[in-house]
Simulated scan of single mutants.
Amino acid sequence: MDYYLSPDNCYQRLEDEFIKYGKLIIAVDFDDTIYDFHRLGRTYTNVINLLKRWDRYAQIIIFTGNGVDKLSEIKSYCNRYGIPYDGINCNSMVKVNGRKIYANAYLDDRGGLPMVYDHLNTLIEKIEKGVI
Results as ranks from 00 to 15, higher is better:
residue 16 D to A: 12
residue 19 I to E: 09
residue 19 I to L: 09
residue 19 I to C: 06
residue 20 K to P: 03
residue 20 K to M: 04
residue 20 K to C: 05
residue 21 Y to Q: 13
residue 21 Y to A: 13
residue 21 Y to M: 10
residue 22 G to M: 10
residue 24 L to T: 15
residue 25 I to S: 01
residue 25 I to N: 01
residue 26 I to D: 00
residue 26 I to Y: 01
residue 27 A to L: 12
residue 29 D to K: 07
residue 29 D to L: 10
residue 29 D to H: 09
residue 30 F to C: 02
residue 30 F to L: 02
residue 31 D to R: 06
residue 32 D to A: 05
residue 33 T to R: 06
residue 34 I to N: 03
residue 35 Y to H: 15
residue 37 F to G: 00
residue 40 L to F: 00
residue 41 G to D: 03
residue 42 R to F: 12
residue 43 T to P: 00
residue 43 T to N: 15
residue 46 N to C: 01
residue 46 N to M: 11
residue 46 N to D: 15
residue 48 I to G: 01
residue 50 L to A: 11
residue 51 L to A: 06
residue 52 K to G: 12
residue 53 R to V: 06
residue 53 R to D: 08
residue 53 R to N: 09
residue 53 R to T: 09
residue 54 W to D: 10
residue 55 D to Y: 00
residue 55 D to E: 14
residue 56 R to L: 12
residue 57 Y to G: 05
residue 58 A to Y: 06
residue 59 Q to I: 02
residue 60 I to D: 03
residue 61 I to D: 03
residue 62 I to M: 04
residue 62 I to F: 03
residue 65 G to S: 14
residue 66 N to W: 15
residue 68 V to K: 08
residue 69 D to W: 05
residue 69 D to C: 05
residue 69 D to E: 14
residue 69 D to Y: 08
residue 70 K to T: 07
residue 72 S to P: 02
residue 76 S to T: 08
residue 76 S to G: 08
residue 76 S to H: 14
residue 76 S to K: 15
residue 77 Y to V: 03
residue 78 C to A: 13
residue 78 C to V: 05
residue 78 C to Q: 04
residue 79 N to M: 03
residue 79 N to Q: 14
residue 80 R to A: 08
residue 81 Y to N: 12
residue 82 G to Q: 05
residue 82 G to H: 06
residue 86 D to R: 00
residue 86 D to H: 13
residue 87 G to W: 00
residue 87 G to I: 04
residue 88 I to Y: 12
residue 88 I to A: 07
residue 88 I to W: 07
residue 89 N to M: 09
residue 89 N to P: 06
residue 90 C to I: 15
residue 91 N to M: 13
residue 92 S to H: 07
residue 93 M to K: 11
residue 93 M to P: 00
residue 94 V to Y: 10
residue 94 V to K: 13
residue 94 V to P: 08
residue 96 V to Q: 09
residue 96 V to K: 10
residue 99 R to G: 09
residue 100 K to L: 08
residue 100 K to C: 05
residue 100 K to W: 01
residue 101 I to N: 09
residue 102 Y to M: 07
residue 102 Y to I: 05
residue 102 Y to P: 11
residue 103 A to L: 03
residue 103 A to H: 14
residue 104 N to R: 02
residue 105 A to R: 12
residue 106 Y to I: 15
residue 107 L to Q: 11
residue 107 L to R: 10
residue 108 D to Y: 05
residue 108 D to K: 07
residue 109 D to T: 08
residue 109 D to S: 14
residue 110 R to V: 01
residue 110 R to E: 14
residue 110 R to D: 13
residue 111 G to P: 03
residue 112 G to P: 09
residue 113 L to T: 13
residue 114 P to S: 13
residue 115 M to V: 08
residue 115 M to D: 13
residue 115 M to E: 15
residue 117 Y to W: 09
residue 119 H to I: 15
residue 120 L to T: 11
residue 121 N to L: 10
residue 122 T to V: 04
residue 123 L to M: 11
residue 124 I to K: 01
residue 124 I to R: 00
